[in-house]
Nucleic acid binder design. Structure first.
Lengths: 243, 243
DNA sequence: AAGCTGTTTTGATGCATATCAAAAGATAAT
DNA sequence: ATTATCTTTTGATATGCATCAAAACAGCTT
């Protein structure tokens, strides 16, 4: 199953986890809270560059990211990679494996990471018992469907600069929800990985960064990105400004 | 909620539905089978061109397509439409609405259609009672996530002709699973809708059709498409032929 | 059958992004 | 420090697809 992970087995409780608001924002009684802790079997560390799971591997568990940063990707037979998402603390990965009991994408740690291993059998069992958990699981899956809908819109309809602007805004918004700066990002992924995610080439990504930088909208220094003019970025994504 | 549908309210049982193998391929005892029938509250007819649900509308139910053909789509504020999927008999739509209790896309009937209305509260209640149904619901959502992953790969990495070839093969495969021909399709959607789905313009879709036709791979007569050389189509999608 | 409307095809041209190439800059290893 | 390796930037050019335009075609209406 999970390959390239350290065999470490720390048992830690959801009930006392500081990420619970993001990961399991559901309210239980004190007694039930102990039951909720049963969803997480163990924790695993994944080192930068290692795979948490890979395409074709048997599916057993979902993973909640505690620390670190992941990318998920699929590939053509010829080896062209398409990054399908970037995931950070509090987010759940592995949902792709449910349908066939096999994972259908790769999940690589872009920085040293720690994940909570949630055997899917546990998730389903507790979901039957606790409607609020059941609802939460459904929402997580639905959210992923909606996110991918909007990615199809982005890749299918927007131009390169709009895509990059949308990407940066989405990233900073999610980081801000985790207590990071509203205006500063340290990218965990390469230009090539951004390009793969957004359906463009790394050179095009680089050029778009340079253009935004020239226009004073952002400040770029390697993987550091400072957002100097967020409204301008938003206007690039949505020129009309309505909504 | 569901707009532009006839208020018809026919109560029909899943247990005796000829689409059950596609829609609810789960085996129950005779007694439990009656309970399963409770997922479907009513049926609705939707006329060609009408919306089953629209972006922003409150989410109450999932819909199982009994007959007919749908497209789902999202839009930019400026009004650019991105078709996110085409759905046919036996498939489930509405999953996008779960996360926010509001639909986030539009679902339009591309031909007169009939759907089974499955109030999501029923689905969740019965899922708690029947693990096999619970698992099925999870699989349906996971399948949608995996499908959208592969759409991102398609739109982000393939060229126009590869996209159209992949589209035709996918369509014919799904139709064949429903008892239709392996080599003939009557398209329910316009060139523009195909283009929107595949991230290309209607003219480009048309040119790709013409090219395939010139090469003798397919036969095109308006919305009728005959597949004359399926291996050639497959080779366009996957030139190396491995896998 | 004739006229109208919307869809599809085909052609000519333009543009955004890919591709090719090389330099500059960062990171890691010796 | 020095060299090697990988990433990023920038430039020159090519190309696939979009755009613009118009004709051909099918489906309706009268």
């Amino acid at each position: 199953m999970a390959i390239a992970t350290t065999p470490e087995t720390i048992k830690v409780a959801c009930s006392s986890c500081n990420l619970r608001e993001l990961c399991m924002p559901i309210s239980f009684g004190a007694d039930d809270m102990q039951r909720l802790d049963e969803v997480v079997a163990t924790r695993h560390h994944v080192k930068q560059g290692e795979l948490l799971f890979r395409d074709g591997e048997p599916f057993k568990s979902l993973f909640a990211i505690r620390t670190g940063f992941f990318k998920t990707s699929v590939s053509t037979p010829e080896g062209h990679e398409q990054v399908t998402g970037f995931q950070m603390a509090g987010e759940i990965i592995g949902l792709d494996g449910i349908v066939t009991d096999q994972h259908s994408c790769n999940a690589m740690a872009l920085e040293d990471a720690e994940v909570c291993v949630m055997p899917f059998a546990n998730v389903e069992e507790l979901s039957r018992e606790f409607p609020v958990l059941q609802r939460h699981v459904h929402k997580i899956m639905s959210r992923e469907i909606v996110r991918e809908n909007s990615m199809m819109l982005l890749i299918g309809n927007m131009r390169s600069e709009e895509r990059l602007a949308a990407f940066l805004l989405n990233l900073v918004q999610r980081l801000h929800a985790r207590g990071f700066s509203q205006s500063e990002i340290v990218l965990r992924m390469s230009r090539e990985e951004i390009g793969s995610y957004l359906g463009m080439k790394l050179e095009t990504v680089s050029r778009a960064f340079s253009k935004f930088s020239d226009e004073g909208i952002i400040e770029v220094k390697q993987r550091y990105v400072g957002i100097l003019n967020a409204p301008a970025l938003k206007k690039i994504v949505n020129p009309t400004g309505c909504v």
